[in-house]
């Protein structure tokens, strides 16, 4: 081997090595970010949870960070998150699934050309804009036509229901479109109407994809902060489920409202709130990826 080829070889090897490193670093960035967040949350949050006592932290009904001694019970916020999420599912899921079925199987092409970009646009609207819409439209509407002061679980549920629509529509639609045409034809060939073939054959065939869409939507609803904070009232007082017209505070809102001025134990309790939130989201994502695996999406 000549000297020149040797040099050239070294150059290539070097370049390959550099490229490899770049790829590995980029690929690891995402994993690293999750890992760092995880470690940070646990290191900062777990000791606080330990000090407060895990049980009294999770099941305590009083959040009084300024009392002496302070009380850090986040059950009201866990329930707040739960209520608005259930509400969002109640409003968003049926509408979203019907919209997806319509777009995939009923919609004439000229309408689809309008609907599809509209749904995409809905997905891109910043949550603060949703929050603003909620404040100026939904809150007065609920106050005027349904009751309460308008800043309520109900209002937040409706708003979140709207916000999870694009997630649910987009994923459900592609799941419905992924159902082989032969399945539809098989139903029609038995004398089923278009509607029956779609709702009783194609939609059930897409059910794990639709489930995945719902789960992802739930994830979005649990994690949403800004818009909920703007319409939910944010009282850190335990509310029972029948009071859908009263306000509530979610886990996310709790963190964002108080973290700015919190110190010491209070601050750590907020980070511990983040840990609880993180565990929720993680559970939702695990459920999602399990469904995805089952469906081979």
């Amino acid at each position: 081997m000549g000297r020149r080829t040797l040099v050239a070889w070294k150059k290539v090897c070097n370049r390959e090595f550099v490229a490899k490193v770049i790829f590995i670093v980029s690929a690891s960035a995402a994993v690293l970010a999750v890992g760092l967040i995880c470690v940070f949350l646990l290191v900062q949050g777990l000791p606080a949870m330990w000090d407060i006592g895990i049980v009294s932290f999770l099941t305590g009904t009083d959040w009084r960070p300024t009392w002496t001694p302070p009380l850090f019970g986040i059950l009201p916020m866990i329930l707040g998150s739960l209520y608005v999420t259930v509400g969002a599912v109640f409003f968003g899921v049926p509408v979203g699934i019907f919209a997806a079925v319509f777009m995939a199987r009923f919609c004439p092409p000229y309408l689809y050309k309008v609907l599809k970009p509209a749904v995409n646009l809905l997905a891109g609207i910043p949550s603060v804009v949703y929050g603003y819409f909620g404040m100026v439209v939904l809150v007065p509407f609920v106050r005027g036509h349904i009751g309460g002061n308008g800043n309520s679980i109900l209002t937040a549920s409706i708003l979140l229901g709207m916000m999870i629509l694009p997630t649910i529509i987009t994923i459900s639609e592609s799941a419905i479109r992924a159902v082989p045409e032969e399945i539809y034809e098989g139903a029609v060939a038995l004398g089923a109407s278009h509607e029956r073939a779609v709702f009783f054959t194609v939609l059930p065939a897409a059910k794990s994809g639709v489930f995945a869409a719902v789960i992802l939507g739930i994830g979005r609803a649990v994690g949403e902060t800004m818009a909920v904070r703007m319409v939910a009232g944010n009282q850190a007082v335990l509310r029972m489920p029948h009071e859908i017209l009263s306000g509530t505070r979610t886990l996310t809102a709790n963190v964002v409202i108080e973290l700015g001025y919190a110190a010491d134990e209070h601050r750590q309790a907020l980070i511990a709130t983040g840990v609880v939130l993180f565990v929720f989201i993680m559970g939702i994502n695990i459920a999602f990826s399990m469904l995805k695996k089952k469906d081979g999406l």
Binding site: P180, E182, I183, E185, G186, A187, A189, L190, G191, A192
Partner: peptide, 30 residues
């Protein structure tokens, strides 16, 4: 009604992703 009288079997088997029973019961239920 025509397709009820004139049934069809396709080139590629296309069972519905449901139980054996529900596959057969689909037509009568319809």
């Amino acid at each position: 009604a025509l397709r009820k009288r004139v049934g069809m079997v396709f080139q590629k088997p296309n069972p519905f992703p449901m139980s054996v029973f529900d596959n057969i019961a689909y037509g009568p239920r319809t």
